[in-house]
């Protein structure tokens, strides 16, 4: 790791000030599990780390609050282990708690934070090898010419081919979660879905975070009767990244879908909402045929690269199985 200086502010405002004072050269240290690895590999080289672990009293970002009316307010520094262990979350949004509880391994879950998970950088092996987020060389993508078995099949018209890494984000987006961002200009609350963006040039970030802006809080409404299901295709039982995930949330009325959210992970540079599947499902009764059709629609626009054709199938199966899981039709699996 390159040398850096280190600050441990006590208030959120101090944290924002410290970050804004050195735009582009300071990084937020939360759990550190992703940031330190990136720094050791020289992929990011901040000159300053601003630790959020010293925030005091009302400024702390490690909290989980629940009200029946508004649901959850979860501080960005709440760990994945906290989420997995939260009794109230397990009752209200079991799928979220379960997703957090099977991410990575226990050592990561004990330190990795909700904010860090949502803002982690892509696992793309070109990015991690130091070829840049877009991995372009002489105007051409190394990913397209190279080994893209883990790369995007959707939203990959370029120049970004990496896949969004967070396994939590798709399920939270399906549940219409919002995030609170605090920056030098104050606080703003945006749908989590809007946190993610396609970088169009090297140096652009895949998150909508302004200079000095930090993610402080996740807001997640009550379950409100939604039927929720997820499916993760992962090769290993032990510590591994998903190859494809899908999360669905269905608002039902008289046995029919009133509103559907279908969000895929690890298949596109950002969490991928399938509007085609969502509108198809609206008004339908869910059975196997409907799940099949929705899954087909979800990958209809997929454009596999040279080595990741199989991911189209994985994404399709993930959507189908998430739908069946949400509606209790997955008994044969």
């Amino acid at each position: 790791m390159r040398p850096f200086d280190y600050a441990r502010p006590a208030t959120r405002e101090q944290a924002v000030q410290l970050l804004a004072a050195t735009p582009g050269r300071a990084a937020v240290l939360a759990g550190g599990s992703d940031l330190l690895a990136l720094m050791k590999d020289g992929v990011v080289t901040p000159e300053r780390l601003v630790s959020l672990q010293g925030l005091q009293g009302d400024h702390t970002l490690r909290f989980l609050r629940y009200t029946a009316a508004a649901g959850f307010r979860i501080g960005a520094l709440t760990t994945l282990a906290d989420l997995a262990a939260s009794e109230v979350l397990r009752l209200e949004h079991p799928v979220v708690a379960e997703t957090a509880g099977r991410l990575a391994g226990p050592q990561i879950r004990n330190v990795a934070t909700v904010g860090g998970n949502l803002c982690q950088r892509p696992r793309c092996w070109y990015f991690r090898s130091g070829f840049g987020l877009l991995a372009a060389r002489e105007g051409a993508s190394l990913v397209v010419a190279g080994d893209n078995r883990h790369h995007a099949i959707l939203g990959n018209d370029g120049p970004a081919y990496f896949v969004t890494p967070s396994t939590l984000a798709p399920v939270l987006i399906a549940l219409d979660a919002e995030v609170v961002l605090l920056g030098p200009q104050g606080e703003r609350t945006i749908p989590l879905e809007k946190l993610y963006r396609l970088p169009l040039a090297e140096g652009e970030r895949e998150h909508d975070l302004g200079p000095g802006e930090i993610l402080t809080e996740l807001q997640l409404g009550p379950a409100a009767g939604r039927q929720v299901g997820t499916w993760e295709v992962r090769q290993r039982e032990t510590l591994d990244w998903s190859l494809a995930t899908a999360a669905v949330a269905l608002e039902m009325e008289d046995g029919r879908v009133k509103r559907a959210r279908v969000v895929l992970g690890q298949v596109a540079p950002l969490p991928w909402t399938s509007r085609e599947a969502e509108s198809f499902l609206t008004g339908k009764t869910i059975d196997e045929a409907a799940a099949d059709e929705a899954a087909k629609l979800a990958v209809q626009g997929a454009k596999p690269l040279s080595k990741n054709r199989y991911k189209v199938q994985l994404a399709r199966v993930a959507v189908r199985r998430a739908l069946l899981a949400a509606t209790g039709l997955d008994r044969e699996l």
Binding site: W125, Y126, S129, F131, L142, A145, G146, D147, R149
Partner: peptide, 13 residues
């Protein structure tokens, strides 16, 4: 996994 363009090992971790 070797990158055909750069000849480097992509999964060196």
């Amino acid at each position: 996994v070797l990158d055909p363009v750069t000849g480097t090992l992509l999964n060196a971790d």
